[in-house]
C-alpha cells in the first residue's frame, strides 16, 4: 500500500459524456451501460506505476449536471490533474468545453494538468466531433488530448497514466510545490526510505529529498 506520491484528480464535463464510466473502467475494469446519474461527487482510487514508482491516484468523479456546478467548483483547487471529458457523438458537449475550461482555470491552481478526452470512440458511426477538432482545441489551450472508450477500455489506462506522467514531470521540474498539499499532491509515507519503487526510482530528479521523518 505504500506509495511514493499521491495525486488527486477530478473528472469534469457535461452530463452523460461518460465520466463515471471512465472511472469505473479504470478502477474496476468494468463498464456500466446504464446512465447512473452522479449526484454530487463520487470517489475512486487506484495505484499505478510510473518510472518504477508507486503512485496512488485519488479520483473525484463530479456530476455534470448544471445543478451541481458550484459543488464541482470546490474540487478544482485541491486537484493536481483534471480529465475534461466530452462525448464525440454529441457536439454540444464539445461546444461547452470553453465554459468548462474557464471554470477550471478560474478555480484551480495554475499548475493543474488538464487532459482533454473525447469519449465513446467506439461509436464511430454516430460521431459528431472529428478527432482533428479535439486535437486542435487541445493544442490551442495547451492541453493533452486523447480519444477513449469507457466501453471497450481503449485508451482509458493511458488517459489516467499520461496525466500522472505529466504531473510527475512537473514535479521533477520543480514546478509543483509538493509540500503544499493544496496542490493535490502528497508525498508517500515511505518515500524517503527508498520505498516501494526500489533503487531504480531513487535517482529520479531528487526533488523530494526525504519528505517525511
Amino acid at each position: 500500500m505504500a506509495y511514493a506520491y499521491l495525486f488527486k484528480y477530478i473528472i469534469i464535463g457535461d452530463t452523460g459524456v461518460g465520466k463515471s464510466c471512465l472511472l469505473l473502467q479504470f478502477t474496476d475494469k468494468r463498464f456500466q451501460p446504464v446512465h447512473d446519474l452522479t449526484i454530487g461527487v463520487e470517489f475512486g482510487a487506484r495505484m499505478i506505476t510510473i518510472d518504477g514508482k508507486q503512485i496512488k491516484l485519488q479520483i473525484w468523479d463530479t456530476a455534470g449536471q448544471e445543478a451541481f456546478r458550484s459543488i464541482t467548483r470546490s474540487y478544482y483547487r485541491g486537484a493536481a490533474g483534471a480529465l475534461l471529458v466530452y462525448d464525440i457523438t454529441r457536439r454540444e458537449t464539445f461546444n461547452h468545453l470553453t465554459t468548462w475550461l474557464e471554470d477550471a482555470r478560474q478555480h484551480s491552481n495554475s499548475n493543474m494538468v488538464i487532459m482533454l478526452i473525447g469519449n465513446k470512440s467506439d461509436l464511430e458511426s454516430r460521431r459528431e466531433v472529428k478527432k482533428e477538432e479535439g486535437e486542435a482545441f487541445a493544442r490551442e489551450h495547451g492541453l493533452v488530448f486523447m480519444e477513449t472508450s469507457a466501453k471497450t477500455a481503449a485508451n482509458v489506462e493511458e488517459a489516467f497514466i499520461n496525466t500522472a506522467k505529466e504531473i510527475y514531470e512537473k514535479i521533477q521540474e520543480g514546478v509543483f510545490d509538493i509540500n503544499n498539499e493544496a496542490n493535490g499532491i502528497k508525498i508517500g509515507p515511505q518515500h524517503s526510505t527508498a520505498g516501494a519503487g526500489g533503487a531504480g526510482g531513487a535517482g529520479a530528479g531528487g526533488a523530494p529529498p526525504g519528505g517525511c521523518c
Binding site: 488527486k8 454530487g40 461527487v41 470517489f43 473525484w60 459543488i71 470546490s74 474540487y75 485541491g78 498539499e181
Partner: peptide, 15 residues
C-alpha cells in the same frame, strides 16, 4: 450533508 462532507474530506480533513 453528504456533499459538504465530501468536500471537507477532499480538503484533507482527515490529515
Amino acid at each position: 450533508n453528504a456533499n459538504i462532507q465530501k468536500i471537507v474530506a477532499f480538503e484533507n480533513a482527515f490529515d
